[in-house]
Computed example of a mutant assay.
Amino acid sequence: MRAAIYRGPREIAIEDVPRPAIEAPTDAIVRVTHTAVCGSDLWFYRGDSDREDGSPVGHEPMGIVEAVGDDVRSVEPGDRVFAPFLISCGYCEFCRKGLHTSCVNGDSWGGDNGGGQGEYVRARHADGTLVRVPERHADDEDTLRSLLPLTDVMGTGHHAAVSAGVDTGSTCVVVGDGAVGLCGVLAARRLGAERIVAVGHHENRLDLAAEFGATETINARGEEAIERAKETTYGGPNHVLECVGAASAMNAAIEICRDGGTVGYVGVPHGVTSEGLDVFGLFGGNVALDGGVAPVRAYAEELMADVLAGTLDPSPIFTKTVDLDGVPEGYRAMDEREAIKVLVRPHGSE
């Protein structure tokens, strides 16, 4: 089969690799029909985080089950499924309490299971990981595009809103206008927020934030963005969603938050250390910090229900679509901010 492989900073190659096969009775093989390039992929793409040369990339697969191990019960060949960005067993202590990202039997989509940006993947712990799309929706392309973000960014934005304590009537600020931040706006609206202030510095993305439900947008950086966000919310909101991961974004979220409020953080940390984090700002304002890597598997069914009901549609975050050969171009487009998020069709438009 063919898959996207990391070959060094700003070098993604499409190579022939062994096709994964059933290795354990809990495995399933999925032919990937839809996947995506994630903003977090850009860290290793730029050389800002370590990645082994020759490793498969991608972690947002959706496709058709081709084979299952003898112990798999929740899916069968022919089913349309999608999978969170991490593999989880579904039965350990952490999975049972909804913290699938801490699964003691967990795994990533790298290594020998195919990677998420390839033609096939082997899903370990298929029953705990794969989410089956109801048959009546399994071939509706518009619905599938709306479901694909549930593999990562929609669930992650939702985790930010939940962690920040957003509920009916809330005022909140969303820091970041990437795919996660935009999904954070959708999530805050879904949870009943009355005012949603989106902060970023790309006009087209802030326009989409407004379409997604942001009541106000702020196009600014640094201290200007912080001051405008606080002024707009009369001294700062009780709920702030940090959706970037950079130290500057984390500290901005802390500074924006009203004393006694909560910052829900989900951006993959980059450049954030104990020395660089405004711990005194948290301490002095009694600001709570909640969140972390999003257990998107815990949210999958409830978010899918809203997508299928037509009340949730994150698909506009996909502003570019490529086939497998176009994955390197997809990375470049996202790196240069020409695309918000790139959808990949590994087998073309079939």
Rank of each mutant, 00 (worst) to 15 (best):
G90L: 04
E275R: 06
A300V: 12
R46F: 05
D313Q: 00
P269D: 06
V121W: 08
R337G: 00
A198H: 05
E223I: 13
R297P: 08
V296S: 11
E242M: 12
A179N: 05
G264I: 06
G276K: 13
I87H: 05
S315E: 07
H125N: 08
R132E: 03
A187Y: 01
H59R: 08
G200E: 00
T101D: 05
G213P: 00
P18T: 14
E275F: 03
R228T: 09
L289N: 11
R19K: 10
R96C: 12
C172Y: 01
D313K: 01
A294L: 05
T156P: 09
L147D: 10
E338A: 09
I218V: 14
K320L: 11
A229D: 04
A249C: 12
V131L: 07
D41A: 07
G8S: 09
V104Q: 06
V307P: 02
G169M: 14
M304E: 00
E66L: 01
P20L: 14
R189Q: 11
A309L: 10
I29A: 06
V244H: 02
F44I: 08
A67F: 12
G222I: 11
V307W: 03
R345I: 08
G292H: 04
V342I: 02
E11G: 05
H202R: 13
H239C: 07
T26D: 15
V68F: 02
P18N: 05
G292V: 07
R80V: 09
R46Q: 08
V287G: 02
G236L: 06
D70H: 07
R122P: 00
